[in-house]
Amino acid sequence: MPKLLKDQQIRNDDFQIRQQGPKEPFLPEGNVLLHVSSIVHAIKANGQHKGQVGIWFDSSDEPETVTHTLNQFPVIAVNFPGFFDGRGYSLARLLRERWDYQGDLRAIGDILVDQLYYLKRCGFSSFRLREDQNPDYALAALTTFSGNYQTAADQSIPVYRLRHQL
């Protein structure tokens, strides 16, 4: 089972990710993530289904059309088809900062330890690690830097404000 880094802990990620499809998705028992194209079904299932229901966005998806529904879901995931596809960083910041998503924002797909620090800064709160990744490195990677030059979606105060105690 894939490993999930969340709240400074590594555990098994028991969420099943349903791929994008034209038909009404079959919901297996337990925690599940549906693609945003099935958001109507996800909203319907949410609360009735045995287990948590969340939605996921691919890096090319545009959450703009569904922003008012986001906070119904306990988990929202953003997929990284490859670690070099940087669109998910912007999506995460938008989900957190513009559309005010409060739940667990999860990075899924090609998630490697060397990208975790930036992912965290952009607002991700949990990380479904690619299976070959070493969980010990993952924990350490979250604290690589003790200061940051920019504002982002984490609570870090940028250096240009810290310097003046703003």
Binding site: Y89, S90, R93, Y117, R121, C122, N148, Y149, Q150, Y160
Partner: peptide
């Protein structure tokens, strides 16, 4: 210099096209 600091380790823009 202000741009240098802003762009250094910018978390959102490390994997641009």
């Amino acid at each position: 210099e202000i741009i240098r600091q802003w762009s250094t380790l910018h978390p959102e823009f490390a994997y641009l096209p």
